[in-house]
């Protein structure tokens, strides 16, 4: 899916674009490298992590960093590094799955609302209602009711998240729908569904990708926030938020527990922010809006 981002932007081939990116966009490359490394870390956690993240050995509590425990051990004698590495798994899985969900819902709602006038009013009112709540409020309420757990957190993140996408997709759709090539396709007798998926969808994907990468980062923060409040992934499963929560009382004694999780969250969000803002720049190099 990621390669499709570039195609609609211009007529340039992928390779040429790639070269341009490398030369002119070091930040994008930097962000992508971090992101890829993070994903590899999550997938290959069992091979990278030096220890079992669940293995308690109470005699070995609060060990300082050593070759055996590169970041030392926590209050239960568990390897801090291994927990931080494994901690990426729930965060990434939840963030990715819920982002895919919101993208799909957002695309469907936005395309329909933008293309079919009849359903526009209704769909946009629903979107308005969803946008009337700060997303963290809805997420917390849902997690509170459904109880903590991976599926309920995914749902709680996805349910309030799609509205933003729907808005953007709808306005893009509306502007593309009246463009010449769509008009001519319609004149040639193309079916609505064909036009939607063949002509409009590729052209709205770019802005969606941009929000989605940024959204990935903010979801990581929300997941960690839930974990920090004790409402996210429950111990002993390592997750960055609950590691941070458990590390907080031990900040003096074993600061690496909290710092390891905090640093990984920051690195991930930094990567998504860089990629997101660079994608926006690529799409519309002339605009200088909120470039970071």
């Amino acid at each position: 899916m990621s390669s499709t981002v570039y195609i609609p932007i211009s007529d340039q081939g992928f390779c040429a674009l790639g070269m341009r990116v490398l030369k002119k966009r070091p930040l994008l490359v930097f962000g992508l490298i971090i992101l890829i490394l993070m994903c590899l870390m999550a997938v290959f956690a069992p091979y990278i992590a030096p220890h079992d993240p669940y293995e308690q050995s109470l005699e070995n509590r609060f060990l300082p960093p050593s070759t055996e425990y590169p970041l030392g051990t926590d209050q239960f004698g568990r390897c801090v590094l291994s927990r931080a590495i494994y901690g990426s798994q729930p965060s990434l899985i939840i963030a990715v799955v819920s982002t895919i969900l919101v993208v799909i819902i957002g695309l469907l709602v936005g395309l329909c609302a933008g293309y079919y006038r009849r359903v526009d009013g209704l769909l946009m009112r629903i979107t308005d209602i969803m946008l009337a709540f700060p997303s963290m409020v809805v997420t917390l309420a849902l997690v509170g009711i459904m109880g903590p757990g991976v599926p309920s957190i995914i749902l709680a993140l996805a349910l309030p998240g799609w509205a933003k996408y729907a808005r953007v997709v709808r306005s893009s759709t509306m502007s593309i729908k009246n463009r010449g090539f769509v008009e001519s396709a319609r004149a040639l007798g193309a079916k609505n569904r064909y036009i939607l998926f063949r002509h409009i969808l590729p052209n709205v994907l770019a802005p969606v990708m941009e929000i989605a990468t940024l959204g990935l980062g903010s979801k990581i923060i929300m997941i960690a926030g839930l974990g920090f409040l004790g409402l996210g992934i429950q111990v002993p499963t390592p997750e960055w938020g609950n590691i941070l929560n458990q590390g907080l009382p031990l900040l003096y004694k074993a600061p690496l527990i909290a710092l390891s999780a905090g640093a990984l969250i920051m690195a991930f969000v930094l990567a998504t922010n860089l990629i997101g803002s660079e994608i926006r720049d690529l799409m519309d190099p002339m605009s200088d809006s909120v470039k970071i």
Binding site: Y54, Q56, L58, F76, Q234, V235
Partner: peptide
């Protein structure tokens, strides 16, 4: 959490609610 680990060793799965 320590109790959870100790009970796991005799084959009991514990979910902690705080």
């Amino acid at each position: 959490e320590v109790i959870q680990d100790q009970l796991k060793k005799v084959g009991i799965e514990v979910e902690i609610v705080v």
